[in-house]
Simulated scan of single mutants.
Amino acid sequence: MLLPLGAGAVVAPPVSAGFNPSGFDFWVDSPEMGPIKSRVFRANDGNTNRVVYVLDGERAQGDLNGWEINTNVAEVLQGWNINVVMPVGGQSSFYADWDSPSSFFGVAPGTGSSAKNSGSGISEALGGGEGKSYRYTWESLLTNQLRWALRDRLGFNPNRNGVFGLSMGGSAALTLSAYHPDQFSFAGSFSGYLNISAPGMREGIRAAMMDAGGYNVDCMAPPWGPQWLRMDPFVFAPTLIANNTRVWVAAGSGAPMQQDLAIPLGAAADRIIRGTPLEALALANTRAFQVRMMSLGAGNVVYDFPPAGLHAWTNWQDNAYRMIPDLSANIG
């Protein structure tokens, strides 16, 4: 197990990935994490009632959210008159409140060469920085400090918001909506970890988190305890039904899309070699969640399993295009 798990049609403008000048930085202080940046994109019609939080994947960067770097989804959402909030940072965090700062063998963060930003997860395991020099408290930030700052400073509606994400952000979106139903009426997961207590999943996540920044899953949530089970959509599925949360879950087949082939041959081959097995795993995980929800008689879920789609931004961008009409109808 290598990594993630991760209607109507939307006519989208041409992709203009990278820094989007229509957004602005919005800083909020977290009691434990310090100043945290989000990127905010205002709805084209100026309303403050319709809001969606857009969550990144496991390799979240510290400068911009991956959705802004790799897609034009913020621009499309603005066109649907939806205000967009993109938290920045939180690599391997699962947007959770962690049990403790990430560390190994009781070694203090920032020790020796491991403190350098080498790009290798193993060499960074004993380093300092986000989630290591302090405890991650992302759930508290998103549902408390950021939520009320958006209301008080921008007038954003703090209720009936949407939330969606990919990979770790997908499972986090369902978790946030399950435990904060007044804030989130809609949750979307693309290639998400939706059955993390299945055999082998914890060790698969352990390997993924080590690779993505050198983080220790045991510091996020102790093995098989209440904190871990609280994060498992397969376990809290009845809560999503009881809340009547509108849920959208998607995973690709692992076959490349046309966009994946319309790039230089070497890059396309690399994308397919990496993205096919990961998305196949995501698909199996998401199908297990589907079976669980169907066994409970859930009528509040849309399932999206396109015939092509790798574990790649091409897939997730198209997932978002298909989801947006349903999101729009279930927030505000």
Results as ranks from 00 to 15, higher is better:
residue 318 D to R: 07
residue 225 G to A: 11
residue 174 L to M: 08
residue 319 N to P: 03
residue 188 G to Y: 05
residue 108 A to M: 07
residue 70 N to E: 13
residue 153 R to Q: 15
residue 65 N to V: 09
residue 118 S to T: 15
residue 7 A to R: 05
residue 249 V to D: 00
residue 207 A to K: 08
residue 306 P to E: 01
residue 45 D to L: 12
residue 45 D to R: 06
residue 53 Y to R: 03
residue 42 R to Y: 07
residue 237 A to P: 10
residue 250 A to L: 01
residue 190 F to V: 09
residue 307 P to T: 08
residue 105 F to A: 12
residue 139 E to N: 08
residue 58 E to M: 15
residue 2 L to F: 14
residue 201 M to L: 11
residue 207 A to D: 11
residue 257 M to Y: 04
residue 307 P to V: 13
residue 264 P to T: 02
residue 330 N to W: 03
residue 236 F to S: 01
residue 290 Q to D: 00
residue 161 N to R: 11
residue 2 L to Q: 13
residue 55 L to R: 01
residue 277 P to N: 02
residue 1 M to K: 08
residue 136 Y to D: 07
residue 196 I to D: 07
residue 138 W to E: 05
residue 42 R to S: 12
residue 26 F to D: 13
residue 36 I to L: 15
residue 154 L to A: 04
residue 110 G to I: 04
residue 152 D to Y: 11
residue 7 A to Y: 13
residue 199 P to E: 00
residue 40 V to R: 03
residue 142 L to D: 03
residue 113 S to C: 06
residue 216 N to F: 05
residue 314 T to P: 09
residue 178 A to Q: 09
residue 20 N to Y: 14
residue 71 T to F: 10
residue 313 W to Y: 11
residue 206 R to W: 13
residue 84 V to P: 03
residue 53 Y to C: 06
residue 300 N to G: 11
residue 123 S to H: 10
residue 265 L to R: 08
residue 307 P to Y: 09
residue 120 S to G: 13
residue 285 N to P: 00
residue 316 W to G: 00
residue 158 P to N: 04
residue 177 S to N: 03
residue 211 D to T: 14
residue 81 N to H: 15
residue 120 S to T: 06
residue 329 A to L: 15
residue 229 L to V: 12
residue 59 R to D: 11
residue 157 N to T: 02
residue 168 M to K: 09
residue 177 S to D: 10
residue 160 R to G: 09
residue 20 N to W: 08
residue 205 I to S: 05
residue 31 P to T: 04
residue 233 P to T: 02
residue 201 M to Q: 14
residue 135 R to L: 06
residue 228 W to G: 08
residue 102 S to A: 10
residue 102 S to V: 12
residue 1 M to F: 15
residue 94 F to Q: 05
residue 180 H to I: 09
residue 238 P to K: 05
residue 250 A to Y: 05
residue 308 A to F: 15
residue 67 W to S: 06
residue 168 M to P: 12
residue 115 A to S: 12
residue 38 S to P: 13
residue 101 P to R: 00
residue 114 S to N: 08
residue 140 S to R: 11
residue 308 A to E: 13
residue 102 S to R: 03
residue 298 A to F: 10
residue 9 A to K: 08
residue 18 G to S: 12
residue 257 M to W: 03
residue 101 P to K: 01
residue 8 G to E: 13
residue 33 M to Q: 15
residue 214 G to D: 00
residue 60 A to E: 05
residue 17 A to L: 11
residue 197 S to F: 07
residue 39 R to W: 10
residue 280 A to Q: 14
residue 10 V to P: 01
residue 172 A to C: 09
residue 243 N to V: 08
residue 60 A to M: 05
residue 185 S to Y: 02
residue 193 Y to V: 11
residue 162 G to A: 12
residue 19 F to I: 12
residue 272 I to F: 15
residue 182 D to I: 03
residue 294 M to L: 14
residue 12 A to F: 12
residue 251 A to M: 10
residue 243 N to H: 06
residue 128 G to Q: 03
residue 182 D to H: 06
residue 71 T to N: 04
residue 181 P to H: 00
residue 30 S to Y: 05
residue 30 S to F: 14
residue 100 S to W: 04
residue 193 Y to P: 13
residue 9 A to Q: 12
residue 317 Q to E: 15
residue 247 V to E: 03
residue 188 G to H: 02
residue 279 E to M: 09
residue 268 A to Y: 07
residue 130 E to L: 09
residue 292 R to F: 01
residue 205 I to A: 09
residue 123 S to M: 14
residue 258 Q to K: 10
residue 99 D to P: 01
residue 312 A to K: 06
